[in-house]
């Protein structure tokens, strides 16, 4: 196939137009799924900020394996969410009396997004913490 500069540009333009629309739909769908996941976990209750810690890399070297950890002392239940993954719920955690209310794991992130932890405390209240993680497009490593 012969590609002149002009039709390469045209193709590039076409690619842009084609992708813009689905991306915005995908965005809205991800936001909806996220809102629904949060509502299901809290039953619509108010969510406070803080009181729990979330550890994530600022920049993930590879979105396929991203180390994340949280500490929510006194939490009964925790949900770990990835705001823009195809399914935002990563995992639910249930903690017994001997637990310290913490966990670390490694997760997949489909692009730059927020990692969110919501904890249900012993008194039934909810609190959350959120951190943005940049997922880079690697050079040869990625």
């Amino acid at each position: 196939m012969n590609i002149s500069r002009r039709n390469a540009l045209a193709l590039g333009g076409a690619a842009l137009t084609v992708t813009l629309v689905p991306v915005s739909f995908a965005q809205a769908a991800a936001d909806d799924a996220m809102a629904q996941a949060v509502a299901e976990f809290t039953g619509g209750a108010d969510i406070a900020e803080g009181g729990i810690e979330l550890t994530t890399p600022e920049i993930a070297e590879n979105g396929n394996t991203v180390p994340v950890g949280f500490s929510a002392p006194g939490a009964k239940r925790v949900v770990l969410l990835a705001s823009k993954n195809p399914g935002p719920v990563v995992s639910f955690f249930t903690f017994g009396a001997l637990s310290a209310g913490d966990a670390s794991t490694r997760i997949r992130l489909a692009g730059t997004q927020d990692v969110v932890v919501i904890a249900e405390m012993a008194d039934g209240s909810y609190t959350q913490v959120s951190k943005a993680v940049k997922v880079t497009i690697g050079g040869c490593g990625g």
Partner: peptide
Amino acid sequence: NMIRADHL
């Protein structure tokens, strides 16, 4: 140095 987002 960087190659895109990676360190060589």
